[in-house]
Simulated assay, not measured.
Amino acid sequence: MQHVLTVITVVLVGLMVGVELAVAAFVNPIFDRLPNDGGLAARSDGARVLGRVMPFWYIGSVVLGVLWAASARGRPEALTVVVATALLVVSVVMSIVLLVPINSRVAQWSAGDVPLDWRRQVGQWDRFHYVRVGVIVAAFVLFVVGVA
Rank of each mutant, 00 (worst) to 15 (best):
W57H: 08
R120H: 15
L40E: 05
V83Y: 06
G134S: 04
V7R: 12
L40K: 13
R73M: 06
Q121N: 11
A70Q: 07
L21T: 05
D117H: 08
F31K: 01
G65A: 05
F128M: 12
A25E: 05
H3A: 14
D37C: 06
L40G: 07
G146W: 04
L99C: 13
F56M: 14
A111K: 14
V97F: 11
E77Q: 09
V141D: 04
I96K: 14
F26D: 00
V82W: 15
L64H: 02
D45E: 14
S71A: 11
L5T: 03
L50T: 08
N36V: 06
A70L: 12
T6E: 13
I59D: 07
V83E: 00
L79Y: 08
V81D: 06
I96V: 12
A47F: 03
V62C: 07
V27H: 11
R73N: 01
V62T: 10
I102A: 06
L142A: 01
V100R: 15
H3S: 14
V90D: 03
G46E: 02
D117R: 09
I102G: 03
S104R: 15
P55R: 07
V66D: 07
V13G: 11
M1Q: 11
A84E: 01
I30T: 08
L79R: 10
W57E: 05
G38R: 08
V100I: 10
S44W: 01
A148K: 11
I96W: 15
I136D: 01
V83A: 09
R73C: 00
R127E: 03
N103E: 13
M94F: 15
L12P: 08
V92Y: 15
S71F: 07
T85P: 09
G146V: 02
V135L: 11
L50N: 13
A24P: 08
V17D: 05
W109P: 11
L79C: 09
V89L: 12
R33V: 05
L67W: 02
V27N: 10
V131C: 13
S104Y: 10
L98G: 13
L21C: 05
V66E: 03
A111C: 06
Y130M: 15
V7H: 03
R52W: 09
L40C: 07
A42V: 07
Q108I: 00
F31P: 02
V131G: 11
S91M: 07
V49T: 09
R48Y: 08
N28S: 10
M94G: 14
V27M: 14
V97W: 04
L12V: 10
V106D: 01
A84T: 03
I136E: 05
F143A: 03
Q121P: 10
L40N: 08
G146D: 00
G134K: 02
A72C: 01
A139H: 04
V145I: 15
I59H: 09
S71E: 06
T6D: 13
F140P: 01
L21S: 10
I102Q: 10
V89S: 04
A111D: 11
A25Q: 02
Q124I: 10
W125M: 08
Q124F: 08
H129W: 12
V4D: 08
V93G: 14
N36Y: 11
V90I: 01
A24I: 04
V4R: 09
V131D: 06
V114L: 06
G51E: 10
S61C: 15
